[in-house]
Computed example of a mutant assay.
Amino acid sequence: MHRPLSGIRVIAVEQYGAGPYGSMLLADMGATVIKVENAATGGDVSRATGPHFLGEQDSQFFQTFSKGKQSASIDLKSPEGRVAFNQLLAGADALINNLRGDQPAKLGLTYDAVKDINPRLVCAHLSAYGRGNSRETWPGYDYLMQAEAGFMGLSGEPDAPPTRLGVSMVDFMTGTMMAFGTVSTILGARATGIGCDVDVALFDTAVHQLSYPATWYLNAGDQVQRLPRGAHPSIAPSQSFRTKDGWAMLMCQTPKFWEEFCRRAGRPDLLDRVEFKDIPARRRNRQLLSETLDDLLSTRTTAEWLSILGGHVPFAPITSLDQALDNPFVAEIGMVEEVDHPDAPDGRLRLLSSPIRINGERPRGRRAPKLGERTE
């Protein structure tokens, strides 16, 4: 298939999650992504991240973030290694890293440090708190950002401890921001012949994702609070509800969906109740509405409600991890693929597919590289 970044070469000094996630998106789109790793120190730390390993210096965790890339073993701190590294830079479009904010300058990974080697090179930096500020030397991870940027304070039940998201979404969003920034600046460099530095940070991205609650606070002093059942701050019903055998999410974001829900649920009488007559009324009477719909939705199983409401009213089962991945719809849309791997059972490893389609087709992946596999 056609991959739009075919012919783009990216050199990646990266490890663990956020940076590798972003460069993996570039590889999915056809870029040649070369991971620079030092075999003497074990390479990317995620190669040793368990509990599921694949032979030596490889793991399922590593495969998750580095499929489709190449690996070159180079010691950036040795004279010989730097010569080899500079040779890679001479033919590259981008140099990316996800090091602590003060490290790129020390390792010579900034545009000023490499522009004489390749003036059109784009240098993308992903760090915890950014560069050139009072926290550039601070280490940081996703969970810290969820804590300080308000995510945990907005998540969970009102009377429960603050709750983090179940996955490292700040890492993934920041990696995506890096990929977007890298492609954008490559386009600019190709037009002008001059590269640049482009920075993204976990903290910046997390704050940016506060989105409309931030706008409400900054302009109206309105502070969104945690609501029961993960409810939407201004629309009801838009929250989780009990069913006969579990939980489901119902989101009547418009009057049309509320009306359709009441009719399909066999309760058109709810449309005539003054407490539920419109969105402001339903918001004011959120607790009564929640109790009323709990009683109604508890009369049928989640699957039964999905058959009644699916495709007509925004409704979804709340699933466990196994239920989410074993969902027949996941198979239908091809969100799981198999790649060849010599150390996996039967030589095949199942991984998530790219979320991007080109002409209706998802780009096929290939396994992440063995450490130093393409050094020569």
Score class of each variant (00 low, 15 high):
L297Y: 09
F261N: 00
M145K: 00
A160F: 15
Q63F: 10
E157P: 06
P233T: 06
R9F: 12
P51Q: 05
S298K: 12
T302F: 04
G7D: 15
G50R: 04
L296Q: 11
N285C: 06
L293G: 02
F203S: 07
G311Q: 01
A40Q: 13
A31I: 02
G7L: 08
R229S: 10
G334V: 13
I34F: 06
V313Q: 00
R82L: 12
N133P: 04
R135N: 08
T49Q: 14
E136L: 03
E304I: 11
R264Y: 03
A90T: 13
M145P: 06
R300P: 09
P233Y: 08
L109C: 05
M249T: 13
G372Q: 04
T110G: 10
L270H: 03
A147M: 08
G246L: 07
G150F: 10
K69D: 09
P314E: 05
V339L: 04
S290P: 02
A206F: 02
T182F: 01
T176C: 02
L288N: 15
N327H: 11
P237A: 06
I308L: 07
F62R: 05
A27Q: 11
V224A: 12
D295N: 12
S307Q: 15
E361N: 09
R131W: 00
P363V: 14
V207Y: 07
G153D: 14
F151L: 10
P355F: 08
V207P: 06
T192K: 05
Q15M: 11
M177E: 12
T41P: 02
E37P: 02
A39N: 04
E338T: 15
G68W: 08
E80T: 13
F151V: 14
E56T: 14
M249G: 08
L352Q: 11
L289F: 08
V170D: 01
L26G: 05
E56C: 07
R366F: 13
T174P: 04
R286I: 13
T205C: 15
A201R: 00
N98K: 03
T299G: 12
R282M: 05
I308C: 05
K370Y: 14
A149Y: 04
P162I: 04
A27H: 09
L325Q: 07
F85T: 02
V183M: 11
L250C: 08
C196G: 09
A31R: 00
A344Q: 04
T185A: 12
D294I: 07
M177A: 14
S354Q: 03
S354F: 05
L88Q: 04
P162E: 07
S73T: 06
S184T: 14
D343C: 08
P369Y: 10
G266L: 06
L88R: 05
V45P: 11
I8G: 06
A147L: 04
L371V: 09
P104R: 01
L321M: 15
D28N: 14
I358F: 15
G55N: 04
L309G: 00
G334M: 12
K106L: 11
T375E: 05
G68M: 09
A191Q: 15
D269G: 03
S23G: 02
S234I: 14
V33R: 00
Q287N: 12
A147V: 10
K106A: 11
L227D: 06
N327R: 01
